[in-house]
């Protein structure tokens, strides 16, 4: 039954990507959904994770730094560390200021990292990127479907773990403070330096998840290049969060599934319908379609499919709103 196998293989492939996206979207949700931090450089932080893990784990690359050949687990931890450090630096510069500045600064990060990826050949391999990124258990599991399923188990486990951890975090006193900061600038002001620290923590943790997502992507595909981390990636991830419903971790995961499904589906449809010489152009239409989807959601259903669960903050918001208005 080759067809069923093919379908299974395709489904696994699809789900691995969906779970990796979901993991990144969870990080974004911690930043935006729960803390109100607007990160436009998601692709940059994902790239940091991907390149870091590749450089730590891959066999020795000729003519360049890295390729340490260390265990994959170390690579993943390293990915989280470097993206966390990058987030920390940017956070120090931009998190004290109005949200627009963070948006602009993170956009700058993504642009700059893209330049580094393209040009710092000694570190990133330049436009060709990095190859031979080791696949975990690939020496034990040689069948490609079995390996894909194994990898799916790993990504799903990490996603589940992150989900549970984040759910506990956002329901903890720490999470309540984050929401209070998001709901009300004045309340945040009164927290002063502490508000900044809370924002910074949420931003760093969120970016670490993005870095981990990048690493998981690198080790699944086996090679990475600058073009994997273009602004379109940031845009897809944001659409996932908005469609699913920001401020809701299950919404973040659902959004990742739905938007990734729509994306692959629309890609397949365009490939089927459009003659090959026009495919490059047709691909731009795909972005336009997803962009329109995002805008329609923003306009018609701003809370997304699931929307934020009502928590104490609803009550808080009413109170603070009233005192502000009188």
């Amino acid at each position: 039954m080759p067809d069923l196998l093919g379908l299974l293989s395709y489904g696994t492939f699809f789900l691995v990507f969906a779970t990796i996206f979901a993991l990144v979207v969870l990080g974004l949700n911690l930043q935006w959904g729960f803390t109100g931090l607007f990160n436009v450089g998601v692709a940059g932080f994902v790239a940091v994770g991907a390149y870091t893990s590749a450089l730590i784990t891959a066999p020795n690359y000729p003519d360049q730094i890295g390729g340490l050949g260390l265990p994959i687990l170390l690579g993943w931890l390293g990915a989280m560390a470097t993206s966390g450090i990058a987030a920390f630096i940017i956070g120090i510069a931009a998190l004290r200021l109005r949200h627009d500045y963070l948006a602009i600064a993170t956009f700058g990060v993504a642009v700059t990292l893209q330049l580094v990826a393209l040009n710092a050949k000694g570190l990133t391999g330049g436009p060709f990127g990095l190859q031979f990124i080791p696949k975990p258990f690939a020496d034990v599991i040689t069948d490609s479907l079995a390996w894909n399923v194994t990898y799916l188990l790993i990504t799903s486990a990490l996603l589940g773990l992150s989900y549970v951890a984040l759910e506990r975090l956002v329901r903890s006193p720490w999470g309540r403070v984050l929401r209070a900061i998001r709901e009300d600038e004045t309340a945040a002001e009164s927290l002063g330096k502490r508000a900044f620290r809370f924002r910074l923590q949420a931003f760093v943790v969120g970016c670490m998840l993005m870095g981990l997502g990048g690493a998981l992507y690198a080790h699944f595909v086996g090679y990475i290049a600058p073009e994997d981390f273009l602004p379109i990636l940031t845009f897809q991830l944001w659409t996932m969060l908005i469609v699913g419903g920001s401020g809701n971790n299950r919404g973040a995961i659902l959004g990742a599934l739905v938007v990734w499904a729509l994306w692959t589906l629309s890609g397949n449809v365009l490939r089927e319908l459009v003659p090959s010489e026009y495919q490059a152009r047709a691909a731009t239409l795909q972005v336009v379609l997803i962009g329109l989807l995002l805008m329609l959601i923003l306009l018609l259903r701003p809370r997304g499919l699931l929307g934020e669960e009502t928590v104490v903050s609803r009550h808080m918001r009413d109170e603070t709103a009233d005192t502000k208005k009188e």
Binding site: G36, F38, V40, H99, D100, A103, P231, I232, T234, F235, W238, T239, I242, V287, V288, G291, L292, L294, M295, L298, P302
Partner: peptide, 14 residues
């Protein structure tokens, strides 16, 4: 304002 930034980011891509 923040939904506006988001929307402008989407508008840019479109």
């Amino acid at each position: 304002a923040i939904t506006l930034i988001m929307a402008s980011f989407g508008a840019a891509l479109v």
